[in-house]
Simulated assay, not measured.
Amino acid sequence: MYAVTKTALFGLTKALAAELTPKKEEVKLHTLLGRFGKADDMDAAVAFLVSDDVSYITGEVLPVSGGIPSRLLII
């Protein structure tokens, strides 16, 4: 069940990304940091996830979203 749900979420995310592309500036307005993320914004999250600090964490999602209220936000 988990794998099916996860795959459905990936599909929804890709569909929303394609659908929201023309509304980029409007989406940026809903991001608390007021900008889109860059590859460098992922550095700390990746460093944390590959460290020993996560030895007892499993099955969690770490959103690096700039403070957008929901990753499934539909405008």
Rank of each mutant, 00 (worst) to 15 (best):
L16P: 06
L16D: 09
L16F: 02
L16Y: 10
L20K: 13
T21C: 08
P22K: 01
K23L: 14
K23D: 12
K23T: 06
K23E: 11
K24E: 14
E25Y: 05
E25A: 15
E26M: 10
E26K: 13
V27N: 01
K28Y: 07
K28D: 07
L29Y: 07
L29C: 05
H30G: 02
H30L: 11
T31C: 09
T31V: 15
L32V: 14
L32W: 04
L32D: 10
L33Q: 15
L33I: 13
L33G: 07
G34R: 03
G34L: 02
R35D: 00
F36I: 02
F36E: 07
F36L: 04
G37D: 01
G37K: 05
G37I: 03
K38D: 13
K38P: 06
K38N: 11
K38C: 06
A39W: 12
A39D: 12
D40M: 07
D40W: 04
D41F: 00
M42G: 05
M42F: 10
D43F: 12
D43S: 13
A44R: 14
A45G: 12
A45L: 02
V46A: 08
F48Y: 09
L49V: 11
L49Y: 11
S51T: 08
D52C: 04
D52R: 14
D52P: 10
V54C: 11
S55L: 06
S55V: 13
S55H: 14
Y56F: 14
Y56P: 03
I57E: 03
T58N: 08
T58L: 03
E60A: 15
V61F: 04
V61D: 13
V61Y: 05
L62A: 04
L62E: 05
P63K: 05
P63T: 02
P63V: 02
V64Y: 00
V64T: 05
S65Y: 04
S65Q: 10
S65L: 07
G66R: 09
G66K: 09
G66M: 06
G66C: 06
G67K: 05
G67W: 01
I68F: 03
I68L: 08
I68H: 01
